[in-house]
């Protein structure tokens, strides 16, 4: 149902009333924003010194390093989780019962605990922070991707696999040349959205002092003295903008892939 069906086309009185609502709600939002701005001003967060920080060479260096650290962890975890996901998905669909059970147990266990608990356990188990983040995210998101891929493979019509067997392909060939290529197309949008979650989760490295973006930013902010105290807000705003931009780009990519897929099938 489109939102337009929820209310009638407005007559003159309703139009007038809605204009009042619109004005009132806009005023309320603006008032809230003004209140926040006022408090910020009172705390000296708008002082030039605070935002000068953004131009500071050392800070830019550290934030740049943090961003690189995130991208490196993301690239490794993304590749790892997709590979692990494919392995586990095939394992869950295996005809050998022990393999199927083992894969199911691994997927269900790692999928239902917080990635942070996993990352921290790896870190406390004497792995360096970078590896703890990459391995933890690989394990957790690998299990999530396994479920995504399995759903895709199960959704391929049965006749496809049967046709493969009928022309004499072996099980592994049916999986590799018939089922997986079709499943991949169907699940690609979901998998890419899950990659966006993986990217967001790299920020968990903050907790174990991996030198990622948030950690670098917080460190830089607490090392700077301005009249209003450490300029946490300024740094957070800049970092948040970066994250939102990259995540939006990834979800736009997912939508684009979905549209392309739909076009091919239609």
């Amino acid at each position: 149902m489109s939102a337009g069906a929820l209310f009638d086309a407005p007559g003159p009185r309703t139009r007038r009333r809605r204009r009042i609502y619109a004005l009132a709600s806009t005023a309320a939002i603006l008032a809230l924003a003004a209140l926040v701005a006022l408090r910020l001003c009172g705390n000296g967060q708008f002082a030039a010194a605070v935002w000068d920080l953004v131009r500071d060479r050392g800070l830019r260096q550290r934030v740049g390093d943090g961003a690189l650290a995130i991208l490196r962890a993301f690239a490794l975890a993304a590749a790892g989780s997709l590979a692990l996901g494919a392995l586990l998905a095939v394992g869950r669909l295996s005809e050998h019962r022990p393999v199927r059970w083992a894969a199911t147990a691994v997927v269900e266990f790692f999928r239902s605990l917080p990635p942070l608990v996993l990352v921290f356990a790896l870190y406390a188990g004497a792995l360096p922070p970078s590896w703890a983040v990459v391995l933890g995210l690989t394990l957790y998101h690998g299990c999530v991707q396994a479920e995504v891929l399995r759903a895709g493979i199960s959704a391929v019509p049965r006749g496809q696999a049967e046709a493969g067997y009928a022309v004499g392909l072996r099980k592994s060939r049916v999986m590799a040349t018939v089922l997986v290529p079709q499943a991949l197309r169907a699940v690609l949008p979901t998998a890419v959205s899950q990659l966006a979650v993986t990217l967001k989760d790299t920020s968990l490295g903050f907790v174990i002092a991996y030198g990622e973006l948030l950690h670098a930013g917080r460190l830089a902010a607490s090392n700077t003295v301005t009249p209003g105290g450490p300029p946490y807000l300024a740094v957070l705003v800049v970092i948040a903008a970066g994250y939102v931009a990259v995540c939006l780009a990834l979800s736009a990519l997912a939508r684009w892939i979905e549209r392309r897929g739909a076009r091919g099938r239609g």
């Binding site: 966006a196 967001k200 903050f206 917080r218 946490y232 807000l233 994250y243 979800s251």
Partner: peptide, 16 residues
């Protein structure tokens, strides 16, 4: 909110 990491939101909540 959908495109911000939760850790970042926690930092905003706790520090800002």
């Amino acid at each position: 909110l959908r495109n911000t990491p939760v850790t970042l939101l926690f930092l905003v909540a706790v520090f800002a």
